[in-house]
Structure formats: C-alpha cells, structure tokens
Design a binder for these strands. Structure first.
Lengths: 256, 256
DNA sequence: TTAAAAACTGCAAATTGTTGCAATATTTAT
DNA sequence: ATAAATATTGCAACAATTTGCAGTTTTTAA
C-alpha cells in the first residue's frame, strides 16, 4: 500500500490515519505506513502498539490487522453452513418418490440428507459413511452402501470393486458435492481415488446434479472428473440469475 | 486448489487464508497453497503445523484437512459402557499386526474400535456404518466396507451381495457382538437379515471371538447363528474363573 | 523392493522488534 | 513568559522472528 507522502502530522492525526488505512485494507504493513507518512518505522510501531493496547487493531509481526478481520474468516464456517442449506433445499426438491439416487459424500450432501422430506420414498446409493448414516436415519429411504476400501480423508469407499458396482447401477440422479468447478476444466478434485469413483458415478447416471457453494466456482484442482457439458444441473446458493453464473449458461445445463 | 497468486501477506493473513481454503474445500495441498500465495512450501508447512497445534486443522502428509468434516457419529448413552470397555480391552489384545479382522456392529465392537492401540497395523472388514467410522479414525488401520442394503435398526449391510463378499474373505479373526448365547442354542438373534450375515462371518473366519456382557448369557432368541462349538473365544466383563461361565468351559472354547 | 514426494533439521539472510538514549517538541507551573 | 517537567521522535545496537534453502530422513506409491 503506497500513497503520497504526508507530512507534519500530529500523533492523533497519524493514528487516525492508520486506523483509516486498516479499516480500508484490512491490514497494513509498518514499512508502507512509514513511507506514506514519512516517519520512522519506530514511530509507526509505537502507534500500532498503542492502538493494539486500546483494542483498535490487532498487532502482528510486520504490521497490523483489522479487528473485524478475524471474525471474517472465523464466521465462514457458519456462513457456509447456511449456504449449504440453501443448496441442499434446492437439491432435495429434485428427488421424487421411487427414484434411485446415487450420491457422493461431502458436507453439502450431508445437509441435503438431513433436509429430505419425511415422506419421501426413494432408494439412495452411496459409498460415503457419513452420508449413509444420515440416509439411514430417514424412515422411508432405502440405503445401499457401495462398499470397498475406505479412503480415510473423505470417508468414502474407493477402489475397483466400488467402481465396478457403481457402473452396474443405472441411477436416475447423481448428486455430487464438488471441490472446484470452472468452465475450462470442468469438475476437478485432488484425490486420485475419489476422482475415479466420481467419474464412474457421473458416467453411469442419467442425470448429474452438481452442488457447489459459489466460492468454489472458477477454481480448479489437478485432477479432472468431467467436463461442464456432462453436468445436467448446477446448484449454488445464489439466485439462478446471478451474474457469477453467466459462464455456465449453456443449453445442456440447468441452473438452480 | 489453484487460484490467482496473492502477494505480501502477513503471517496471520496467510494463515487465515489457509483456514478459509480448508473450510471451503475440506482439504488443501501444501503445494497448491505454496503456488497461490507465492511462498515456499516450508512456510506453508510451518503454517499448517501451527494451525494443527492450535487445533484449527488436521495435518496430513501433503497438506491438511478440515476438522469439522470428521466426527458425525456421537456416542449416545450406551447401556453398560463400563462393562463393555472391559470386554473391549480384552478383545483388542487379541489383534496382532498384519491380521485381517472381520467384525460386526454393535456397541461393544465400537468400544473396541476406540481402544485399538495407535500403532496397530491391521485390516478391518465390516458392514457396520458406525464401526467403519471408528476404524477409519485410526491412523494405521485399513478399513474395508462390505456394502449392500443397510438395515436401519442395526446400521449394518445385509443381503446376498454382502454375504457373497463375506464368504470370499478368509479372515484371521471374526469379532461378534451378540444378543443372546446359551450352551443349548448357541448364538441366537431375532433379525433374519442380520443372522444371515453373522452366519457367513462365522463360517468364513479362522477364529470366532464372541463378545457379550454376562447379562446376555443363558438367554436365547428365535434365530440361530451357530452353535457354541463353533466359537473359539468368549469374552465377557467377568473374571474368566467366574462361576457364571462354568457352562461354557469346553475344550474348544477359550474364556477371557 | 525402489524411486519420488513430502517432512524435518539446521542454518543463514532479511526483516522486524526492543531498548536505551539523546535531541526536540510540547505541556505545565510559577 | 519562562523554566522545568513531560512527551515524542529518531537513532543505534542488539534481540527475535520469519523465511527460504540445502542436506537428510521419513513416508508414500508403484
């Protein structure tokens, strides 16, 4: 952060200026401030210490952070849960009585499982331990677990056996929680085994529904699961008309 | 996760960014973070270590995992926990490195799973959702889930597919939590599907270990799993010399 | 098993912090 | 107003932190 040098400030003025900069950028570097106000870094440091002592900023090595900064990142957990619930509700509305539904794991899927209507009668097939657990709590849902070796990170079954069995299933719908999606690379992930399983799921299902919070859009990872053209429905927490979704408006893709 | 590079971050900012990415994607790779923030992998590793030390993420080889993702299954108040723990400890002592262990579900099995030593390297095969979850929390244990339709009451996979696969396994040990046992009727249960699965497990294993709180001894139910002569080890919370166990002192049966 | 990837270790360079001190500037008391 | 007291500021020497690198060990995957 570099601005025009300012001179001859009183201490209070200077500190007010610093506070302003912090609230503007969420963080400041001592070196930059020293440059823009033309005082020594010692002075800046002393200012920052005072502001930190009175709780106005958070002092860190090399500068200071805005106080709201911390809560911004900390709340992301909760805030994502809310978004995931929005997604989950849209997703749940796609499932009709009698359907065969193939799903992966992931927190969004879990949220969806919890939101399934009590009276829904359908068959869910999954290789995810937490998802299977959630499905099995529902009174009218049949759960088929697709077993194999359990990948510890993701808590889902992976391996040839699982993939073979997935390919023998002709599901009506496939719900996929994903890690990254963009128009160029399609759905991508970074776990080889998981990618194999998800690939099989997409290929064997009549329709593929992708659930993703909007933050995961326009990022990509190393391994490709499938292209955007193989997705039938994209669900985010955003309104379907949102600008962020413009790149995904294709003939083959429904946005919810 | 690959996004546009960001530069000149304060350490805290960087760590907040990492946390955000972890909560977003459930997992991060050190290499990817190093790319997107333009710092060396060493720095990322040090950050991840710090975040792991303060319990914000779970560090794994190559990156880190979200902490919130794990732990869906809460131990509801288990009947007779203390006795079950005694049983579980005895049972755990039977398992040696390299073994293939086939287990059912049930609260006693879950307790055993929690008591397995950290350094035990073995392969566990099960059709129980809670058991598979517990096994998968251990660092050195391979978990194979034997999938099929999930029986809701017992949260285990039942059906022809599961049975066929169980019969193809030649396990060293089979651990069974049971509902009823007496010398006349052997192991008995009252759920048809579950009985089929347990039968297959007993028949395909080199040794069968039965875990039961003493209350369940000398009672029986409608459906027979196997006779007492097919059991190799009987574990209860009692001292092996206890009078209650006298009826079970046979040549073929070890009492622990 | 072996080979590659990742982690750890110690280390050096750069940056940032701390402290004491002297030079100024500002305030206070008379 | 003026001197004394007090605050502020910059500087220099030294301490601490952070970061990247090279060499080694450990872990992982084939």
């Amino acid at each position: 952060m570099l601005t025009n040098p300012v001179t001859n400030m009183l201490k209070k003025e200077r500190q007010a200026y610093i506070l302003h900069q912090v609230s503007l950028h969420n963080s400041v570097l001592s070196a930059d401030l020293s440059n823009s106000i033309n005082v020594s870094e010692d002075t800046i440091r002393r200012d920052l210490n005072e502001l930190a002592e009175t709780g106005k900023v958070i002092k860190v090595h090399g500068g200071a952070l805005s106080k709201s900064f911390n809560s911004f990142y900390l709340r992301s957990d909760v805030y994502n849960v809310d978004n995931k619930k929005i997604i989950a509700e849209k997703a749940a509305s796609l499932i009709k009585d009698g359907m065969f539904v193939l799903t992966g794991g992931g927190t969004t899927i879990i949220e969806m499982a919890r939101l399934l209507p009590e009276d829904l009668k359908a068959t869910f097939l999954t290789g995810s331990i937490p998802a299977a657990y959630e499905y099995s709590q529902h009174p009218n849902i049949e759960v088929i677990f697709i077993g194999d070796k359990i990948a510890k990170k993701s808590q889902i079954a992976v391996g040839g056996e699982a993939i073979t069995r997935i390919r023998h299933i002709k599901a009506d719908l496939c719900f996929l929680g994903i890690n990254a999606l963009d128009t160029e690379h399609g759905i991508t992930d970074n776990d080889w085994d998981v990618v194999q399983v998800k690939k099989a799921m997409v290929e064997t299902s009549a329709k593929t529904v992708v659930m993703s919070i909007s933050e995961k859009l326009n990022s990509y990872q190393r391994l490709r699961i499938c292209g955007v053209d193989e997705i039938d429905v994209l669900i985010t927490e955003l309104d379907p008309s949102d600008k962020l979704l413009d790149p995904f408006r294709l003939n083959s893709l429904t946005i919810l």
